[in-house]
Design a protein around this nucleic acid. Structure first.
Lengths: 237, 237
DNA sequence: ACCTGAACACCGTTCAAGT
DNA sequence: ACCTGAACACCGTTCAAGT
């Protein structure tokens, strides 16, 4: 029996792996990683949960792909750019990306299969450093300390029980208000004299630590390229 | 009717909240956080899952208590110790503790209720810095950059698909072997010329970054306490 | 006070069956 | 090739009932 394709019928185009991936990311972005279940994801796509397994081997593989998609969003500018502003800008982009997808950081702990975008991002960073004169060993050091700092800072940022300065003042007040004033004196001082002051935002701490690390790397690079032992102070000081 | 207590009968002492907490930590340490379900935890304690709710409001409260117990394990030596070795030793202890409880880091992302041990740990660190002459603002900077680095480093360490140098050589080989040699040239160079060399261990990168940050903080402290603008180089260089 | 059985509303995934 | 219904072995948690 010949059954012609119903070309005129409004029909859902067959689901693609890309569609599944992006729907999963949107779901996790909006409702948190706990909201991302195969059943709810299927619901959002208008299919049954079991149909997802035609596009994705299992939930773990989906999570791997999601993490790789996050790395694709991190901008790495290395084209003939000096290493310091390039690394600085990449750090800023990485932080923004990881904040946009709050679920990603917590998932990296358990992922072991780096995707293509992840490898490309790493390669670009290493290339920038090597071209700037970093030895292989120093490039490894630099990569480690920069990524550690970025990941850890975002982890703390996401852990904060507030998102804006108004929240902060309210929350820090309620935490310490119920305690005797001398239980945590230094924490109390930090809250009252600094953190709860107008204009304070934890996000601003990011640049202090980032520049401290970049300056330290610059010094280490200078020591290496000038083996007379004289530290070259190339900063603004 | 009078029913006497069966004093002679071998009877389980009533379960305490502490017992539940430690069993939960052991379960997560051994099998990963996914293994920690209320049902399996109850099994291990020889009771039914529902009985746990007499000692813990819900799973979320249990997770909060587990994170706080991890902070209790971090050693903070601040008694009259100079700030630099004290902060160095605390960073080492924090890293070891977080490696011992690999589940803890991923959970901090979603916890918002700091416990007593957490607050005590933070207070001790701030006290050490303040006594050493750090301004409130610089102490906040120092705290942020140090904790960010520690957390981020451990996050990367846990993310590595190997635990010892032997694994490393095998894994790094299999990742890059299947690729054309020029797809990720700098990653390839890093693997072949550095990471896969005998004696390399990612764990050793920890001290480079830690000392880089501590030296940077020392410099920032010196600049502040000597307002003549002359940087005091108190390091070994 | 502490523990429990049964139940509810969920999970990820398999498998045989449909078109 | 793609989707599905039914089922399996799990979840966290509630609630009424036991001692």
């Amino acid at each position: 029996m010949f059954t012609p394709q119903p070309t005129t019928t409004a029909r859902r185009s067959p689901l693609s792996r890309e569609e599944v991936l992006h729907a999963a990311i949107r779901l996790a972005d909006e409702g948190g990683i706990a909201e991302l279940t195969m059943r709810k994801l299927a619901d959002k796509l208008g299919i049954q949960a079991m149909s997802l397994y035609h596009h994705v081997a299992n939930k773990d593989e989906l999570l791997d792909a999601m993490v790789d998609a996050v790395f694709r969003e991190i901008e790495v500018v290395t084209e003939n750019a000096p290493w310091k502003p390039a690394m600085r800008q990449r750090a800023v982009s990485a932080r923004q990306t990881l904040l946009r997808h709050a679920w990603a950081l917590g998932m990296m702990e358990s992922r072991a299969n780096p995707g293509q975008a992840t490898l490309e991002c790493h390669d670009a960073v290493l290339g920038c450093l090597r071209r700037a004169g970093f030895s292989v060993a120093l490039a490894a050091h630099a990569f480690s300390v920069l990524d550690s700092y970025i990941y850890g800072f975002v982890l703390q940022e996401l852990n904060l029980p507030f998102q804006n300065p108004d929240d902060l003042q309210r929350v820090s007040g309620s935490i310490l208000q119920n305690l005797p004033a001398d239980t945590y004196p230094h924490l109390m001082e930090m809250m009252t004299a600094h953190v709860s002051q107008p204009g304070y935002a934890y996000a601003d701490e990011f640049m202090f630590g980032l520049d401290l690390i970049l300056d330290g790397l610059e010094q280490a690079l200078g020591v290496r390229t000038q083996p007379d032992g004289c530290v070259a102070l190339t900063g603004s000081g």
